[in-house]
């Protein structure tokens, strides 16, 4: 989600200018009451549990799991989601695929957020030519559509999970850089920070009590929504054969494998991995939405 409109920036700037007292307890309480945040959290929690428990409940060796005799069987008591073209249980693969999708989603955005926020803060603090240089660099990255840029990066570095993760991170960086820069600038010129400074409050104190709590909320929102996009992008790369290589289960790759069997009527092989992608992405989008409502005072009228 790289499209930050002027509107959003001004919203965020407003959010920042409103001092918060005991921020996190308030936020959590509000969040717990927020409907879409509830739904999102439940979905995310569900997938996290699946990812964590999958190897404990059903240890899985993707390399030797193959039973061609049992291939493309529709859902049954033995295989709730049916089997794929190699006779593998789709439910098991989706469960283990959750580890890859959630892991890559979170990791790539984390990487992008750290790099992006760092670059943005530097640009915002330094100003001048460095600011210009960094931000034009971000503009250049943003000029190429995310998926195209990611595909090209993977094409250069070769298909694989690590390169896909890197590619997604690269395309995600500019969003954070812009966000962090606008925060750095608005905070630098902010009245209450100037006031605090003039009262002799130390820089670290200002950082701890004012800047951090105030700047974290938009980043958290962006992060949550970013994970959603990253999971989608990962699935798209996997679908195009550029992500995780077989035999390890990745949802997008599972979809492209299954697409071949539509003619044979194997609807289950296409439906369930797609649902897994959609629901997990929906979870992060719902939570992000809720977080935005709760953290953005303007919408709380």
């Amino acid at each position: 989600m790289n499209d930050i409109t002027f509107d959003e920036i001004s919203q965020r700037a407003e959010a920042i200018t409103t001092p918060v007292r005991s921020p996190w307890a308030v936020v959590l309480r509000r969040l717990a009451r927020h409907r879409s945040a509830q739904m999102g959290s439940v979905l995310i929690l569900f997938f996290v549990l699946v990812a964590v428990l999958a190897p404990i409940v059903y240890p899985y060796n993707a390399i030797v799991d193959s039973n061609p005799v049992n291939r493309l069987k529709p859902p049954s008591a033995a295989h709730l989601f049916g089997t794929d073209s190699l006779g593998r249980d789709i439910l098991v693969r989706i469960a283990h695929g959750a580890r890859i999708s959630l892991g890559v989603g979170v990791l790539s955005v984390l990487l992008a957020a750290v790099v992006g926020v760092l670059l943005g803060l530097i640009a915002g603090q330094a100003g001048g030519w460095l600011d210009n240089l960094l931000m034009r660099g971000m503009d250049i990255l943003m000029a190429v559509p995310d998926l195209l840029l990611a595909i090209v990066i993977v094409a250069i570095r070769g298909p694989g999970l690590g390169n896909a993760l890197l590619a997604i991170s690269v395309v995600t960086v500019p969003g954070y850089a812009r966000l962090a820069r606008s925060m750095a600038i608005s905070l630098r010129e902010n009245d209450f920070i100037m006031a605090a400074r003039s009262l002799g409050v130390s820089t670290s104190e200002i950082l701890r009590t004012h800047i951090l709590p105030n700047s974290l909320s938009p980043i958290i929102v962006q992060f949550t929504l970013g994970v959603a996009s990253a999971i989608l992008e990962m699935a798209a790369l996997g679908f195009l054969g550029l992500g995780q290589q077989p035999p390890w289960p990745e949802w997008g790759a599972m979809l492209s494998d299954s697409a071949k069997f539509l003619g044979a009527g194997a609807w289950w092989a296409l439906t369930f991995p797609g649902l897994a992608i959609m629901l997990s992405v929906l979870g992060f989008n719902l939570l992000g939405d809720g977080l935005r409502d709760v953290l953005d005072p303007r919408l709380k009228r």
């Binding site: 390399i63 193959s66 073209s85 190699l86 094409a155 070769g158 290589q245 035999p247 494998d257």
Partner: peptide, 26 residues
């Protein structure tokens, strides 16, 4: 369906103690 066959071969080789890593490129 080369990918399916590769995965099935990898599984069989794995059972015989030959652990392969599957790779492909354009």
């Amino acid at each position: 369906s080369p990918k399916d066959i590769a995965e099935a071969m990898a599984a069989d080789l794995g059972k015989a103690g030959i652990q392969v890593e599957l790779k492909s490129v354009d």
